[in-house]
Design a protein around this nucleic acid. Structure first.
Lengths: 244, 244
DNA sequence: GCAAAAGTGTTGGAAATACACCCATGT
DNA sequence: ACATGGGTGTATTTCCAACACTTTTGC
């Protein structure tokens, strides 16, 4: 270190920095989106066939290069808009992947996002037959380092769904408690006790009872609910637990 | 969307992508590190004076541009190594900040990390008097968007410390329970019950009793402990709670 | 002997879990 | 009538949280 490091930030002039920023040190950046949907009681992810010879036949995440005059989140929204036709989508940045050799076309650092969309709204809008919804359980061997990106994003979703009520983004506006529970069970890959699940959600007081019933189900119809967001955001923990 | 989007990923050739990667779409990338330390029973962060006229007199995080042939994490380690002289430091990537106008020298996207270091080891190695340890409580009005980056990283640390036993990275190898509790209290900015804190940690069985005592304290000396990592990593939750 | 922090157990309440029966609908 | 999932209550256990006194050392 020593000389170089002492100089590196404290004494560089703005001109030096400008020169570095504009010339020597630029790198291509992309955004990749793990787009989750929920259909047939299964958690799905939207993938596209890779067109690169190296990854022929493999699936990959949806992504694109970031334009030099485009905000990061904007870039992610653009990809979603282009691919799904949907605005107003839940989106969360997860991690940035920067291995030198991760992309065959050269150095590309990629910022990974996951997003949650209501697959019913979306269904009508897939024109491109290279796009396909995959069960998350069957997602293996993606192109590039996309398997790692997918795994990271899926784990993040599993964690977040326990901390915040994000599920509604994946469901229709109106849903039954059974659908909600199916959603949680498929995201977390677990089974839950029905009575305890209901108790938990009702006690959180985040659902509005619509006084409507399911239609056309081959069994006793369930009540339909909506998420109530006014009531969320108030709940904080008082004491602070340590839970390793 | 339409035409452009349909083509954008599914039909671009490797040559097109290579050209984009190498020419039109490159952006400068930096790493910024929020370096935490613990001293005098307070959580501290290492800052450097900004040399840019625009931010004269303000403090900023330690960072540098990523070199085109340097891995992301490597880059963060390099900055830490240069600034603190320490290897083998706990480091976690937190978020990538990409507002178009965040840096006066032009478009620079920055990947934020936080790190935890043992300030005792480090003390000897600050040569640069533009570097200074600040109480996290007094960190305001940093240069660039570094206040936002700092806030984000600090919140992440507060969350992580409740989920994983990271604290030891900030403490000497041997520490008393009082020091450990002081650490948690200063990170979380809260007070905890001493008996419950002890119970909690002992029940986790992550501490090795060294059968040594504190020296030269003006009161009854406490026992000294070490973190025991073999035992960590086993604890999982069985049922899955939902805690909004 | 006094100040300062170490060390130690118990109890009540809240939340999580496990668990079984009747009900409404479509076929 | 039967198959399917909807809807409900209680008892047990586990975890959290509040709380006070005695001990050891330095001065």
């Amino acid at each position: 270190m020593e000389l170089e490091s002492k100089l590196s930030q404290s004494e560089k002039s703005i001109l030096t920095i400008q020169s570095e920023v504009q010339n020597t040190n630029r790198i291509a950046l992309s955004v990749d989106c793990v787009i989750f949907g929920f259909d047939e009681n299964k958690l799905k992810v939207l993938l596209i066939r890779s067109d690169l010879k190296k990854y022929k036949g493999k699936w990959s995440l949806l992504g694109d290069l970031i334009k030099p005059a485009e905000d990061l989140d904007k870039s992610a929204y653009r990809i979603l808009q282009q691919r799904t036709g949907l605005d107003d989508i839940y989106l969360e940045q997860v991690h940035t992947f920067g291995e030198i050799k991760r992309h065959p076309a050269g150095r590309v650092i990629t910022v990974a996002y996951y997003s949650l969309i209501n697959i019913q709204h979306h269904k009508l809008k897939i024109y491109d037959n290279e796009l396909h919804w995959h069960d998350v359980k069957n997602v293996t061997d993606l192109a590039f380092d996309h398997q790692e990106i997918f795994d990271t994003c899926y784990k993040r979703l599993q964690k977040r769904i326990l901390e915040h009520p994000l599920g509604f983004n994946l469901l229709p506006k109106k849903f039954s408690l059974r659908e909600l529970q199916n959603l949680y069970e498929s995201i977390l890959d677990t089974k839950m006790d029905r009575r305890n699940f209901r108790k938990k959600f009702f006690s959180m007081d985040l659902l509005t009872d619509l006084n409507e019933m399911e239609q056309d189900v081959p069994h006793r119809p369930g009540k339909l609910y909506q998420f109530n967001f006014k009531k969320y955001e108030k709940k904080k923990k008082t004491w602070i637990g340590i839970d390793f």
